[in-house]
């Protein structure tokens, strides 16, 4: 199957209050792939993701989601784009006053005209997909951090989006829970053909799930590597990239200590 771009980020510049964080970056995400945005702390990877889902407005550039620019979209056009995406936030961001089932039901209640029983069934099925069907009546505060993230994925999938954005899925999880989450991502990607855009710096996770990565760098304010993570690890001629994938201290820190 030839690669077909579903997200195109073009001539994109972003930052805070005149401080440019990334300048004129360009990349595409292909339909059905697990795409990982990585980079060191402060490189702006979470910020980039929040721009891609329309939360922030860039200084310049465009983010085309399935052909439509989310940056310039407004009102119903923006909502039409948002319906194609689901987002899992770093903390889960489940609504604390609602049960897991109510959390998953919410987007369905707001956007579909299904009757109550049908919504219940769809929501239950989403929870089943992430292995939480037995916990549908629990409040978010009553379940563990890993379960909260899975519930957040279930909610993000409520309207069967074509693209799922995950912000730091493994942050704060133990290695086993984190590995289970990786398996879940792979399973959803392969069985439901969902495109994943994941922000992380967890190496094990990257090797486990990523078809393709881009690496951001705060010094160059741009993308310093793009491709298959294992290939980048072994063949990149950029010392920063190699250090990152081998989990070594940065070159200039080593020079200072020597």
């Amino acid at each position: 199957m030839p690669a077909e771009p579903i997200i195109r980020v073009e001539h994109f510049t972003a930052g805070y209050e005149g401080n440019v964080l990334m300048r004129d970056i360009n990349f595409t995400v292909n339909r059905g792939e697990v795409f990982v945005i990585l980079g060191g702390s402060g490189s702006g990877k979470s910020t980039l993701m929040k721009h891609m889902i329309g939360l922030y407005e860039p200084m310049a550039g465009a983010v085309y989601i399935d052909g439509d620019d989310i940056v310039t979209s407004e009102g119903d056009a923006r909502r039409a784009i948002l319906k194609k995406i689901g987002v899992m936030y770093q903390s889960g961001a489940l609504f604390g006053s609602m049960t897991l089932l109510e959390n998953v039901r919410l987007p369905l209640e707001e956007y579909t005209s299904l009757d109550d029983d049908a919504i219940d069934l769809v929501a239950q099925m989403k929870l089943k997909l992430v292995g939480l069907d037995a916990f549908s009546g629990h409040m978010p505060s009553e379940i563990s951090g890993g379960m909260q993230k899975r519930a957040a994925i279930a909610r993000a999938m409520a309207l069967d989006p074509t693209i799922l954005f995950l912000d730091e899925p493994s942050a704060g999880l133990d290695p086993i829970t984190s590995a289970e989450l990786d398996l879940l991502i792979l399973r959803l990607a392969r069985s439901l053909h969902i495109t994943f855009v994941i922000v992380t710096h967890e190496l094990a996770s990257i090797y486990a799930v990523a078809d393709r990565v881009i690496m951001l760098d705060k010094r160059t304010k741009g993308i310093i590597a793009e491709g298959d993570p294992k290939v980048l690890r072994d063949t990149s001629d950029n010392p920063w990239v190699r250090q990152f994938f081998r989990r070594e201290a940065a070159p200039d820190t080593i020079a200072e200590t020597a």
């Binding site: 329309g54 948002l82 936030y89 961001a93 489940l94 604390g96 987007p107």
Partner: peptide, 17 residues
């Protein structure tokens, strides 16, 4: 305020709500 800190407001916004 807590919902904002927990990104729940962002979650609403990206649901188009």
């Amino acid at each position: 305020g807590t919902m904002k800190v927990n990104e729940e407001l962002n979650a609403l916004t990206t649901m188009g709500l």
